[in-house]
Design a binder for these strands. Structure first.
Lengths: 239, 239
DNA sequence: CTAGATTTGTTCGTATGTATT
DNA sequence: GAATACATACGAACAAATCTA
């Protein structure tokens, strides 16, 4: 365990305990080992372990009870399958009881060269941008920016706001079906926006997907950049 | 930019600049904006920005030159395609000149329930574990633990050590072809092992894949957990 | 039920790292 | 580079809640 490298010891330890919980290492007992045990395992003071556990308690992952120990409140990650037929709501399935899709903002704008290229738009085209937030069981699980060709999908913001579903909104525009063409996955540290929107703390990890959806004629209909809290989400690709 | 959250300001800023570089935001100039510009952008003191840039220089990402500015030395991420026919060496393709595969260690052991289940092994079976490190242009790009059924692949460690390729090693055991059945992707903070093996600094992000390969009869032949430095690697899924 | 062992909660003090001016 | 304020980390000791024999 290193010191003096810009990341506080207690946060490094919090990260390791969080991973251990997600990996199911403490499933037997349903609680984390005692503070003194963890302290000697990590070779640090008990105060440092306590700071780490306090951070995890803040995140709702554990709950400390005097005399009993530190109980695990929430452990598994939500799994998102990625396939040709990726659908957000279906993907979550029954991994969460309450599912919510919010439209944060929408606007019409001139696309960046990158986005125009991905959507194969002719020069001078406009796009509609949707900013959306998805929650599962009250917790934010994704924050997406999506772009659509304005001439084909004018008014999609209203359709999404009404239904809370991209699939339903597409149907209103005659797109009965669509498929995921490409997905890029990377991971970065949460930025200020992520901290606010996804309710994360600095140093948290965000999984970023850049995805292109096409209609059944192979024409791009949606390009989106979605950010997921990495401690809550993983992806599965089945071939 | 938040303080008091376990991650030093200079490291948060280093992370953001690193991401900006990887996203190509400074491609125009080939260098990072002046320290005073960055300082006012992030709302911090110039000393703090200097600490951040010093850390990035330590990682070999930038190089400060007095009078000229802070030049970008290395920027793009390596892209790994994930598909039914995922092959490591082919995947890198011509994104790197020098490619290297090292066998760090190998052993025969009793599998954990998780691993026995993934490989569909009968109770009491043994497995062979391979610890491998891959480099591209001298930099470590992945660190893998792989498990194989011992009764079918006894001696695969030697075959891998000789060829540096799983595909070649499989051929020696009569597995002419294999396919990727499932890939799980998640992201965590680098642990002590990652810091050492992948040459990362604390707080760095590691992309973790858990992959199952099957032979053409659909029988599992390899389960592996691979860790990639997130600032160097991204994944692409084409459907 | 009591007594002792376990485990978390709290309060001192001291030294070092971080960030600003 | 120096001075200052705050955050981080360690150590020792004791208090309070819970469990166990």
């Amino acid at each position: 365990m290193q010191r003096q490298n810009g990341v506080a010891l207690w946060r490094q330890i919090a990260d390791r305990i969080r991973t251990s919980i997600a990996d199911g290492n403490y499933d037997r007992e349903g609680k984390v080992p005692p503070e003194l045990t963890l302290a000697s395992e990590f070779g640090v003071n008990r105060h440092t372990v306590r700071s780490a556990l306090a951070a995890l308690a803040e995140e709702g992952i554990v709950r400390a009870v005097q005399g009993r120990g530190t109980l695990i409140e929430r452990k598994e990650r939500i799994n998102f399958p990625i396939s040709r037929r990726t659908r957000f709501t279906q993907g979550i399935g029954d991994q969460a009881r309450e599912k919510e899709g919010l439209l944060l903002a929408s606007s019409q704008e001139t696309p960046s060269p990158d986005i125009a290229g991905r959507l194969k738009l002719p020069a001078g085209s406009k796009v509609i941008r949707l900013e959306t937030l998805r929650k599962a069981d009250r917790r934010p699980v994704s924050r997406a920016s999506s772009w659509f060709a304005a001439n084909r999908f004018g008014g999609i913001a209203e359709a999404y706001a009404k239904t809370g579903s991209i699939t339903a909104a597409f149907e209103a525009f005659g797109v009965k079906d669509y498929v995921r063409a490409v997905t890029e996955i990377s991971a970065v540290h949460a930025d200020a926006q992520d901290l606010a929107d996804l309710g994360l703390s600095p140093g948290a990890i965000v999984l970023v997907t850049r995805a292109l959806n096409c209609d059944m004629d192979g024409a791009p209909v949606q390009y989106s950049v979605t950010r997921f809290p990495a401690d809550l989400v993983q992806f599965t690709i089945e071939n």
